[in-house]
Simulated scan of single mutants.
Amino acid sequence: MSDSLHLVCPKCQAVNRVPTARLDQQPNCGQCHQPLFTGHPVELTAATFARHLERNDIPLLVDFWAPWCGPCKTMAPAFVQAASMLEPRFRLAKVNTDAEQTLGAKYSIRSIPTLILFRGGRELARQAGAMTVQDIARWARSH
Rank of each mutant, 00 (worst) to 15 (best):
H6Y: 10
L7D: 09
V8Y: 00
V8W: 01
V8N: 03
V8S: 02
C9N: 03
K11A: 13
C12H: 12
N16R: 12
P19Q: 12
P19D: 14
P19H: 14
T20R: 15
A21M: 07
A21V: 07
A21K: 02
A21L: 11
R22Q: 15
L23I: 06
D24A: 14
Q25S: 11
Q26W: 04
Q26Y: 09
N28F: 03
C29R: 00
G30M: 00
Q31P: 08
H33V: 06
Q34G: 05
P35H: 06
P35L: 03
L36P: 05
T38F: 02
T38G: 02
T38E: 05
H40L: 06
P41G: 05
V42A: 07
E43M: 03
L44M: 10
L44K: 02
T45P: 00
T45L: 09
T45I: 10
A46G: 15
A46Q: 14
A47K: 04
A47N: 09
T48D: 09
T48I: 04
T48H: 08
F49A: 03
A50P: 04
R51E: 12
R51M: 10
R51P: 06
H52I: 06
L53E: 08
L53V: 08
E54T: 15
E54D: 15
N56H: 09
D57L: 11
I58T: 06
P59E: 01
L60W: 01
L60E: 01
L61T: 06
V62F: 01
V62E: 04
D63Y: 08
D63Q: 11
D63H: 11
D63G: 10
D63M: 08
F64T: 10
A66C: 10
A66L: 05
P67Y: 05
W68K: 08
P71F: 09
K73T: 12
K73R: 15
T74P: 04
T74S: 11
T74C: 08
M75P: 00
P77D: 03
P77S: 12
A78F: 03
A78Y: 06
A78P: 01
F79Y: 14
F79C: 12
F79A: 10
V80E: 15
Q81R: 14
A82V: 13
A82K: 06
A82H: 03
A82G: 05
M85F: 10
M85D: 12
L86R: 09
L86I: 14
L86N: 04
E87I: 00
E87C: 00
E87R: 02
E87Y: 01
F90W: 04
F90H: 01
R91M: 14
R91C: 13
L92Y: 08
L92Q: 08
K94W: 04
K94V: 11
K94A: 08
V95T: 05
V95Y: 02
N96Q: 10
D98S: 13
D98V: 04
A99M: 11
A99I: 09
E100H: 05
E100G: 07
Q101L: 13
Q101D: 15
Q101Y: 14
T102G: 10
L103A: 10
L103W: 07
L103R: 13
L103D: 02
L103M: 11
Y107K: 02
Y107T: 03
S108N: 15
S108V: 13
S108W: 07
I109Q: 14
R110C: 12
R110V: 13
R110I: 13
R110A: 15
S111E: 06
S111W: 08
I112H: 02
